[in-house]
Nucleic acid binder design. Structure first.
Lengths: 138, 138
DNA sequence: TATTACCCTATAATATTTATAGACTTTATA
DNA sequence: TATAAAGTCTATAAATATTATAGGGTAATA
């Protein structure tokens, strides 16, 4: 399951996407809208900014804004950023690969093979759907 | 990511699948083979038994054995049993449905729609692949 | 009837996730 | 230029979930 962090990130991005006409949006406004702790959200937005998805402006009149086109923000990117691997096993993760501790041989592991399929099916959706697809439906 | 519990369950099932010729297999043998804590594994096997996947026999000469054909043990069943929902959001889970706390309207939620797609793609593999597919490759 | 091996519940240890705190920097504007 | 607004950053606390252990109970076998 996606963590709250990731869900909150999607909510924030949706809100920012809907308010692209404004120069900036306050953390406060987003946290109010979804009932998210201001400080918790702060950390999330910071990560999104460091990843180049959001921009920010300090000081009075400041806030956050989308720096990318919604269509260029793949859902997979957001999930990986906040939650880490999308794959169900570390040994089939493209971005966070690690061998499985108890596994003797990846080549001979039947689970490994199936989980590669699952991963690819998931990515097929998550890499090709973007913030734009979410915004469309709201 | 799958929990250790689920991974251990798959290992145990694989081991039991490979030793179907024997009447029973000791917890001990499985825990040795994969370096899993005996007691931890015990709880897992118990759950698999309660779910009707394994049978057991008490006393001397006892142990566990597969009660179903490997092809009839869908991977999705094992994951749901030990890990809970396969879906990435509670609001799109078929077996563990819950509304999302911060979500105002499921019908208007863009994430909801995409995550249904992801779930279906995952299930497309996990419902149709079984223990038999894992055994094949080992 | 002694021994083996699973049954079951409770609890402890650890790790992860979620949330909070507080001091700091930048910016607008009165 | 003083003040208040708003994001920055790091640390830590609280809550929750996962992983592991403990120990007595029950059934089967020889």
């Amino acid at each position: 399951m996606l963590s709250k962090k990731t869900k909150y990130a999607f909510h924030a991005l949706t809100y920012l996407g809907k308010h692209r006409d404004q120069k900036t949006v306050l953390i406060h406004d987003i946290s109010e809208e979804y009932g998210i702790s201001h400080k918790f959200l702060e950390n999330i937005l910071l990560e999104l900014r460091k990843a180049g998805i959001l921009g920010s402006k300090k000081g009075k009149g400041g806030g956050y804004y989308l720096i990318k086109e919604p269509k260029d923000v793949a859902l997979s990117k957001v999930i990986r950023l906040l939650d880490g691997p999308i794959a169900l096993l570390p040994c089939v993760s493209l971005n966070y690969y690690e061998p499985c501790a108890e596994c003797k041989s990846e080549a001979l592991c039947g689970l490994n093979k199936v989980m590669i399929q699952v991963r690819d099916e998931m990515l097929n959706v998550l890499e090709n759907k973007s913030l734009a697809d979410i915004l469309d439906k709201e």
